[in-house]
């Protein structure tokens, strides 16, 4: 199981693929990311790699199960999904979406 993530070209913010054929299907909230089967994820990644006017640097994040990141990816993806863990913008992303930490 995998998540598809990237940065939006115009502002660089982290996006998560949440279904649909165009950029409106992506969401800044990792909690809403679509859990993808491996084959579908690989196909979507190839599709979005070519759509460079919308997203930058797309890649797949492996999951152990629906809500658990693979340990190797944990810190990095936890930070990307929830915001920096310290300082003025601590957990900014989670707060903007009025939720607790995901993953």
């Amino acid at each position: 199981m995998k998540l598809l993530t990237a940065n939006r070209l115009t502002d660089g913010l982290v996006l998560w693929y949440a279904g649909g054929p165009d950029l409106s299907g992506w969401n800044e909230d990792a909690a809403l990311a679509t859990r993808l089967e491996d084959e579908a994820a690989a196909a979507l990644l190839e599709d979005w790699k070519a759509r460079e006017t919308e997203v930058v640097a797309p890649y797949l994040v492996p999951l152990l199960d629906e809500n658990t990141l693979v340990k190797r990816e944990y810190v990095r993806e936890h930070v990307r999904a929830n915001g920096p863990t310290a300082g003025q913008t601590a957990f900014d992303t989670a707060r903007q979406h009025q939720r607790g930490e995901v993953f």
Binding site: V14, V56, A57, G83
Partner: peptide, 22 residues
């Protein structure tokens, strides 16, 4: 411009793509 073409140009002007944003 593709990202591959643009990346060295933005870096020459101090613009990186980091974990959360530019």
């Amino acid at each position: 411009l593709s990202e591959d073409q643009f990346k060295p140009l933005r870096l020459m002007n101090g613009l990186y793509l980091q974990l959360h944003a530019y």
